[in-house]
């Protein structure tokens, strides 16, 4: 099953991944990371198609995609 992995402490919470995700499954976490931002996360990973659009729009190369 496709999945994405976030390098949580690199995320600056810009939400570009969330906006461009065709499945709309990316949200910002409640907690904060080492940089002080709310990092992006996926709750319903089973809906991920592994399209990698989130990773391609991420300015901080936070996301690794498996398919």
């Amino acid at each position: 099953m496709p999945k994405v992995e976030f390098n949580v402490d690199r995320c600056k919470g810009c939400e570009l991944c969330a906006v461009f995700c065709p499945q709309k499954i990316i949200k910002l976490s409640e907690g904060i990371n080492k940089l002080g931002y709310h990092p992006a996360t996926v709750k319903e990973m089973e809906k991920c198609t592994g399209c990698a659009i989130c990773a391609r729009v991420c300015p901080d190369c936070v996301i690794k995609v498996y398919k």
């Binding site: 099953m1 919470g13 990698a52 300015p59 690794k64």
Partner: peptide, 20 residues
């Protein structure tokens, strides 16, 4: 399951100073 997207080798594995 294989990796379909990851950090390119030529890109340093560091946090940039750029704004969010």
């Amino acid at each position: 399951m294989k990796v379909v997207f990851e950090r390119p080798r030529a890109l340093s594995d560091v946090t940039t100073h750029y704004c969010p």
